[in-house]
């Protein structure tokens, strides 16, 4: 039995509340990108911000006060370069101090760097960032949960470019072979890699069919529509089902900041103080547009 009440103090947030949190998450990401002097992987942070919000503020059974509870859902950030998005989403859920992130990010001995490091930050499930590692780890954790008769889920977030790695498909096959219905992959389908757009160099299509061919349950959704993300989470098959599920989230890299959207130059970068203002204004404008 999965017991939601254990994990969420009070009511689960509404879609409107989740949308506000996603906006706050994006603003905080831009602030970091405007104040930290090095590069931040802002493009893939912004494309995944709604997914992170839906997971950490709605879907995942996790407890910020008990990070090693054996019954928690496991979250693996396979696209580890979106670490800051995870740190901040988790800080907004009470795991970490936001000020601590902003003040120490990237500095010597900081727990928060460009890629999640479990040695420095025990609150994350694994040290990731080398693409193609998350899903195999998730299969191992899901297998262990099955073996122990535990009902939690293992959730893994991947980049679509990342799914070029062979290890992803080896893991996909292993998950199906072992009937791991407690495993859920989210793919941030922003149709960009680091240096090219999807289909330009790599033929991803027919993308959902690839997952289907590996025996996975496939859900396709708009990765920026909070109601749709919430529905996808609500509709996930029970964790004792026998088919792993992939939620393919159609997204826009750089989402919310017009000059970053679909722009290869903003895979990673750094905003100066002046451009921070410009980016925040663009974010506000895009919210206005969407609420009209």
């Amino acid at each position: 039995m999965r017991d939601d009440a254990v994990w969420l103090e009070g009511e689960r947030p509404s879609v409107a509340e989740l949308e506000d949190r996603a906006f706050e998450l994006r603003s905080k990401l831009l602030h970091l990108c405007g104040t930290y002097e090095g590069a931040v992987h802002i493009g893939g942070d912004l494309s995944a911000a709604d997914i992170f919000t839906a997971l950490f503020h709605y879907g995942l059974r996790v407890d910020p006060h008990d990070i090693s509870n054996p019954r928690r859902d496991r979250f693996l950030l396979s696209k580890g370069h979106a670490a800051v998005c995870m740190y901040i989403a988790m800080s907004m859920r009470g795991f970490f101090s936001y000020d601590g992130i902003v003040e120490t990010y990237g500095k010597l001995d900081s727990a928060y760097g460009m890629h999640p490091c479990k040695v420095q930050l025990p609150g994350v499930e694994a040290s990731t960032g080398s693409l193609g590692h998350g899903l195999p780890l998730a299969v191992g954790m899901a297998l262990s949960a099955r073996h122990r008769g535990e009902a939690h889920r293992v959730v893994c977030l991947l980049g679509d470019g990342e799914t070029g790695e062979g290890s992803v498909w080896e893991a996909a096959m292993a998950a199906r072979s072992n009937e791991l219905g407690n495993l859920v992959a989210f793919v941030d389908r922003n149709r960009q890699l680091m240096t090219s757009h999807a289909e330009e160099r790599v033929a991803f299509e027919p993308y959902p069919d690839k997952w289907r061919a590996f025996g996975w349950e496939v859900v396709e959704t708009d990765g920026h529509d909070m109601a749709a993300l919430v529905k996808a989470i609500d509709d996930l098959p029970a964790s004792d089902s026998d088919r792993p599920t992939v939620v393919i989230c159609e997204t826009v890299k750089g989402k919310g900041v017009d000059f970053m959207e679909r722009n290869l130059a903003w895979h990673a970068g750094s905003l100066g103080a002046a451009d921070l203002e410009r980016a925040l204004a663009a974010l506000e404008a895009s919210r206005q547009k969407e609420t009209v």
């Binding site: 590069a39 680091m194 750094s270 905003l271 451009d275």
Partner: peptide, 9 residues
């Protein structure tokens, strides 16, 4: 002008 980096560069 914003400074952009691409990792690997």
């Amino acid at each position: 002008m914003p400074v952009t980096f691409t990792f690997g560069e």
